[in-house]
């Protein structure tokens, strides 16, 4: 399968100001290794799509910016000569062509003999398991099928990098999970350099070798999914990725005191006034277990494998606690809480 020769990509001080004066991207330096899957993650308007479009060649960076493919400056090279495969949120399939013609279009442009095009299109149809759709028109396909055709079309030309712009956003949740898995398998087996833009953090965690979290046209953090989740660099990253609980209080003699009570925390820094932790680092104490943190259940959602509790502790927001599904919780119930100090973050 690895008939693709992956390349490294580097951005040097790439900024983007639109004609109306909007600053979409602050000067950005970034390097992406050959064969790596990098996910650009952030809310809409954070500059992630703009960055992708600069790499693709659909936008030109402001003067001074440089895009390098394998160390070669391609800033002035138009997209049609960059040999990158693109998958769009709206798929951008050509309605005037059949599925097979869509997949073969890039090969036709490259003047490949028609017998070879047939072979390659057949390969692609097989790889995406859409052989039966070869002669369908695009408007006869479901969303998931369109997405497969779009992927096949982008990969058919053996691009040096694959750029995916929110490819799963238009699909429903269940299909999104299936296709996410397929895309992951595909990217691994192709060993292609891939850049994946999304606003869905679960997608980013699942697919990325590294995640670039963006906010207001700036990079907030770059790192492996585990680092981003466990060691968020800013409050924005902490809040954007997963769920984060907060408690306000003060440290005295190795104990963090807040409205909910006291939390023994030997390594506490003296100036900590707000602590952050994930729902999985807090638990409901067993009956009889001593606890100096108390809360009232505001709501309890039974999720099958676990129960998600929203616990009122006198803060602005209730704490989110993942708890066992075996015990029955009811609204208004008083519970004791215990926090694992290893999961505590200060930002």
């Amino acid at each position: 399968m690895s008939d693709i020769n992956p390349m490294s990509i580097a951005l040097k001080t790439c900024a983007k100001t639109f004609a109306d004066g909007t600053k979409a991207l602050e000067p950005l330096d970034l390097s992406i290794n050959a064969g790596e899957t990098v996910v650009f993650l952030g809310p809409s308007g954070c500059g992630k799509t703009t960055t992708l479009r600069i790499i693709a060649g659909l936008e030109e960076p402001d003067a001074g910016g440089q895009v390098l493919f394998d160390g070669q400056d391609v800033t002035q090279t138009p997209i049609e000569q960059r040999n990158v495969g693109m998958v769009f949120q709206s798929y951008a399939l050509f309605p005037n062509m059949s599925v097979a013609e869509n997949i073969g279009y890039g090969l036709k442009i490259r003047k490949m003999p028609s017998s070879q095009i047939r072979t390659r299109v057949g390969e692609m149809l097989g790889m995406m398991q859409i052989e039966k759709l070869a002669n369908r028109r695009i408007d006869q396909l479901s969303g998931g099928q369109r997405q497969r055709v779009a992927l096949a079309r982008a990969i058919a030309v053996r691009p040096r990098a694959l750029l995916l712009d929110e490819p799963l956003t238009a699909l429903d949740a269940k299909l999104r999970d299936t296709l996410r898995l397929e895309i992951d398998t595909l990217l691994r087996s192709l060993q292609i350099t891939a850049i994946y833009v999304t606003h869905d953090q679960a997608e980013a965690m699942a697919l990325g070798d590294r995640i670039v979290v963006m906010e207001h046209g700036r990079v907030a953090q770059i790192g492996a999914p585990r680092d981003i989740y466990q060691k968020p660099a800013t409050r924005f990253v902490a809040d954007f990725i997963g769920t984060m609980n907060r408690l306000n209080g003060a440290v005295r003699n190795g104990v963090f005191t807040c409205r909910a009570g006291d939390l023994p925390w030997p390594e506490a820094p003296a100036d900590a006034s707000e602590i952050l932790f994930r729902p999985e680092d807090i638990r409901v104490t067993e009956s009889g277990e001593a606890s100096r943190l108390q809360g009232t259940i505001a709501s309890a959602f039974f999720l099958g494998d676990r129960t998600r509790l929203f616990v009122e502790v006198g803060e602005k927001l209730p704490l989110v606690v993942e708890s066992t599904a075996r015990r029955d919780f009811s609204r208004g119930e008083q519970i004791g809480l215990a926090i694992d100090p290893r999961g505590i973050l200060i930002l």
Binding site: A56, L58, P78, I79, E80, Q81, N83, V84, G85, M86, F88, S90, A92, L93, F94, P95, N96, Y105, G106, I109, R110, R153, A154, V157, L163
Partner: peptide, 28 residues
């Protein structure tokens, strides 16, 4: 039709302006 995206799709596959106009814009 979403003309801009269709053209961008064709361009990413290597189609020059003239090919895009001939193969995508006119037929659609």
């Amino acid at each position: 039709i979403d003309l801009n995206t269709l053209e961008e799709g064709a361009a990413s596959l290597g189609a020059s302006w003239w090919r895009r106009f001939r193969d995508i814009v006119l037929p659609n």
